[in-house]
């Protein structure tokens, strides 16, 4: 009847996780001081995702508890991916399918400086 059988995360583990999170915060700030071109965003997102994974698995205990909650999270994250992907399918290629000129709408707008996009 008691919750005593719940997994108790050792203080050593919690301390190790907060240390890693602190170091990764410094790493993301350091990485941002260099202009890595098109890698700026992916690297920042990668570090943030690693940090979030530590918080979710250890602090929130998803690694230890009922796997149903991990499934709920996974379904939620899949929905976020669907959300982002389908919005970008619109905004990145808006109007391209009905264009009568060759090239993308973005390209034809660049040849007409007066045109204000979006």
């Amino acid at each position: 009847m008691s919750q005593a059988e719940h997994h108790i995360v050792p203080i050593k583990t919690l301390t190790a996780v907060i240390a890693v999170l602190g170091v990764l915060t410094i790493v993301t700030v350091a990485a941002a001081q260099f202009d890595l071109g098109s890698f700026n965003v992916p690297i920042a997102l990668l570090i943030a995702t690693i940090k979030a994974s530590f918080v979710i698995s250890i602090f929130m205990g998803l690694k230890y508890g009922n796997k149903t909650n991990a499934l709920i999270l996974a379904v939620g994250l899949i929905m976020v991916v669907v959300f982002v992907t389908f919005i970008l399918l619109d905004t990145e290629f808006r109007g391209d399918t009905s264009a009568t000129e060759s090239g993308t709408i973005m390209q034809s707008e660049q040849t007409m400086p007066a045109a204000e996009s979006h």
């Binding site: 920042a44 997102l45 570090i47």
Partner: peptide, 16 residues
């Protein structure tokens, strides 16, 4: 922890 995770993403995307 979720509030923390949201900030983990907001910080690099907005500030860095």
């Amino acid at each position: 922890h979720l509030v923390d995770i949201i900030w983990i993403f907001l910080f690099p995307l907005l500030y860095l």
